[in-house]
């Protein structure tokens, strides 16, 4: 059994907006927005996802409804390397 820390999103856990985490994510409820994780994303058969996905690995079970732009892979995008609080706000002159 996988014992790594896991963020399990069920209908008990109401989430709004985009999600960015370094934990593995198990989605088993409708979710609308972006999901970014440094680790695994598992959408089980009850999952519904509209938006975008970025993760290290992906597993979508039969029955899940996903409509998303996906980028899955080993290359960690820049946005994951920089903590979000440290991100520089874009200058109006840029």
């Amino acid at each position: 059994m996988d014992s790594e820390p896991l963020l399990h999103i069920t209908d008990q856990l109401k989430l709004k907006g985009d999600l960015s985490t370094s934990l593995s994510v198990h989605l088993s409820t409708p979710y609308f927005g972006k999901i970014k994780t440094k680790k695994k994303l598992h959408c089980d058969s009850n999952a519904e996802l509209q938006g975008s996905i970025r993760s290290l690995t992906l597993k979508v079970e039969n029955g899940a409804k996903v409509h998303a732009d996906v980028q899955i892979g080993t290359r960690i995008p820049l946005w994951l390397k920089i903590p979000f609080s440290m991100k520089k706000a874009p200058s109006p002159h840029e």
């Binding site: 732009d69 980028q71 892979g73 080993t74």
Partner: peptide, 10 residues
């Protein structure tokens, strides 16, 4: 170690 890019619809 695998890479996937695109618009996915199940």
């Amino acid at each position: 170690g695998g890479v996937l890019r695109g618009r996915l619809t199940t």
